[in-house]
Computed example of a mutant assay.
Amino acid sequence: MMKILVVDDDPNILELVSIQLTQAGYTVMKASDGFEALELLEKDLPDLAVVDVMMPRMDGYKLTKKLRAEADIPVLLLTAKGELEDKEKGFLAGSDDYVVKPFEPRELLFRINAILRRYDKAVDVFIQAGPMKINRQSYEVSVGKKVLLLPLKEFELLSVLASRSNHVFTREILIERVWGYDYEGDEQTLNVHIKRIRDKLTKLTGEVTISTVRGVGYKLEVSSS
């Protein structure tokens, strides 16, 4: 599962971003300043960092330079400033993108996904959910010797759901992760794809199912045989 380090001295922003990322299926590491972030880095390596610019003791620019030098992970900067000079300073420090507060949570997720795609980190190569194994390189879904080949969108949708078993993904998050931030269609497309995947999973295994959480979205469940 992808890990994202969120660094912000504002506890409200820190919690808001953490909740949004967790709901999107990411594992979140939280730090209230640059020094705490570097301490976390010694214990675990995230796939990306979301860093606030205006922080005490160590600002986001300095932290970005250290993250680049010590871990070489992509960085997205959060700031209340939108001037060109501040953006230039952020990019010179090594950031990959720049989001100005206040921001829409969906925009933050969109930009994070775009960065991870550029770094080819968007998903793990293999995803295991009970007896089902998903190979992101060969685009195969298998249980034992049974192999299932799905159309691309169905494969991506199943991969997102399987990346975090028993976690409820909202319809909005699933649409954004599979069809993109600027998708203009309706939720019926998602519902149709879910139905098709369910029908195919039934023939592959009885231990993996996709449940509907009414009014919210879907989750993939794994049961023992």
Rank of each mutant, 00 (worst) to 15 (best):
residue 123 V to I: 14
residue 182 D to L: 13
residue 139 Y to G: 11
residue 128 Q to D: 14
residue 193 H to M: 02
residue 127 I to N: 07
residue 189 T to I: 13
residue 164 R to G: 13
residue 120 D to Y: 14
residue 184 E to N: 15
residue 123 V to S: 14
residue 132 M to R: 11
residue 129 A to Y: 13
residue 115 I to E: 11
residue 147 V to E: 04
residue 103 F to M: 08
residue 122 A to P: 02
residue 129 A to W: 15
residue 100 V to F: 13
residue 161 L to H: 08
residue 162 A to L: 02
residue 130 G to H: 07
residue 156 E to P: 01
residue 167 H to V: 01
residue 160 V to F: 05
residue 168 V to S: 04
residue 162 A to C: 02
residue 100 V to M: 13
residue 151 P to C: 06
residue 191 N to H: 15
residue 115 I to H: 12
residue 112 I to S: 05
residue 182 D to M: 15
residue 201 L to C: 02
residue 194 I to Y: 03
residue 196 R to D: 01
residue 137 Q to K: 11
residue 146 K to W: 12
residue 131 P to Y: 06
residue 146 K to F: 12
residue 99 V to N: 01
residue 174 L to N: 01
residue 164 R to T: 10
residue 125 V to S: 03
residue 122 A to C: 10
residue 148 L to R: 03
residue 151 P to S: 08
residue 96 D to W: 15
residue 144 G to F: 13
residue 179 W to I: 01
residue 188 Q to G: 04
residue 187 E to S: 03
residue 102 P to L: 04
residue 127 I to D: 09
residue 144 G to R: 12
residue 133 K to D: 11
residue 117 R to Y: 01
residue 108 L to R: 13
residue 106 R to T: 03
residue 153 K to I: 00
residue 120 D to K: 15
residue 164 R to Q: 13
residue 159 S to N: 11
residue 125 V to P: 01
residue 177 R to L: 03
residue 133 K to M: 11
residue 176 E to M: 10
residue 174 L to K: 01
residue 172 E to F: 01
residue 119 Y to A: 14
residue 167 H to D: 02
residue 112 I to L: 10
residue 117 R to L: 05
residue 141 V to N: 06
residue 160 V to T: 14
residue 167 H to K: 02
residue 176 E to C: 03
residue 99 V to D: 00
residue 113 N to R: 11
residue 178 V to I: 00
residue 154 E to M: 06
residue 198 R to D: 08
residue 136 R to Y: 08
residue 95 S to N: 14
residue 143 V to Y: 10
residue 150 L to Y: 05
residue 111 R to E: 06
residue 170 T to G: 09
residue 156 E to L: 13
residue 123 V to Q: 14
residue 196 R to F: 00
residue 107 E to G: 09
residue 197 I to F: 09
residue 154 E to L: 04
residue 163 S to F: 07
residue 194 I to D: 03
residue 198 R to E: 12
residue 122 A to N: 13
residue 131 P to M: 04
residue 148 L to H: 08
residue 192 V to F: 04
residue 179 W to K: 00
residue 179 W to G: 01
residue 101 K to P: 10
residue 103 F to L: 09
residue 153 K to V: 00
residue 104 E to H: 15
residue 189 T to H: 09
residue 199 D to C: 03
residue 185 G to A: 00
residue 157 L to N: 04
residue 133 K to H: 08
residue 114 A to V: 04
residue 153 K to F: 00
residue 147 V to G: 03
residue 116 L to M: 09
residue 173 I to A: 10
residue 182 D to V: 12
residue 123 V to R: 15
residue 110 F to R: 05
